[in-house]
């Protein structure tokens, strides 16, 4: 799919950056004129992926989180969130709803939310090297009152 636009940023894995990350990504996506529900879905999915980097990948350290957002043909948004943290030994298990290694106050729903709120989710991880989460969502094309596509 042809790339039409791209945005990249790098953040430290500090929890104060969770809000900035989801707001920055959603602000970039607004050029596609998403619905409120679509923008909320993206904000929630980004928040989950960034939180995973902070809580799991860089559990006992502060590291870099790399975020890349691409606007592709057909109103598709691709969001890639990458860390160089500890990696996930068993990705299939980590993606099971309610599975968490972080203890009592974590719901274990991060990947379930990403899967449910986005059209496509791919997780590639290598222990000791890091994890890359790639999510895609097609933004609906709205027809303006003059008949043109928005």
């Amino acid at each position: 799919m042809k790339q039409l636009n791209k945005f990249s940023m790098q953040l430290l894995s500090r929890s104060a950056n969770e809000s900035f990350a989801r707001v920055a990504v959603s602000a970039f996506v607004t050029q596609l004129d998403p619905t409120i529900e679509e923008i909320n879905d993206i904000k929630t999915a980004v928040s989950e992926a960034v939180t995973n980097c902070i809580v799991h990948a860089y559990k006992n350290e502060i590291g870099n989180i790399y975020i890349q957002v691409r606007i592709l043909e057909c109103n598709v948004v691709e969001i890639k969130i990458r860390d160089k943290g500890c990696g996930i030994p068993d990705v299939d298990r980590a993606m099971e709803p309610l599975y968490t290694t972080a203890g009592g106050e974590r719901a274990g729903l991060g990947f379930a939310v990403m899967q449910s709120f986005m059209d496509n989710l791919r997780v590639v991880s290598k222990v000791g090297k890091g994890t890359t989460v790639t999510m895609k969502k097609r933004i609906s094309v709205r027809v303006k009152s003059n008949g043109q596509q928005g």
Binding site: E48, T51, E105
Partner: peptide, 16 residues
């Protein structure tokens, strides 16, 4: 204004 699954953890934890 916004909630991710951390809010679910908050509700579940209070239930417990």
């Amino acid at each position: 204004s916004f909630m991710d699954s951390s809010g679910i953890g908050l509700v579940m934890g209070r239930y417990r």
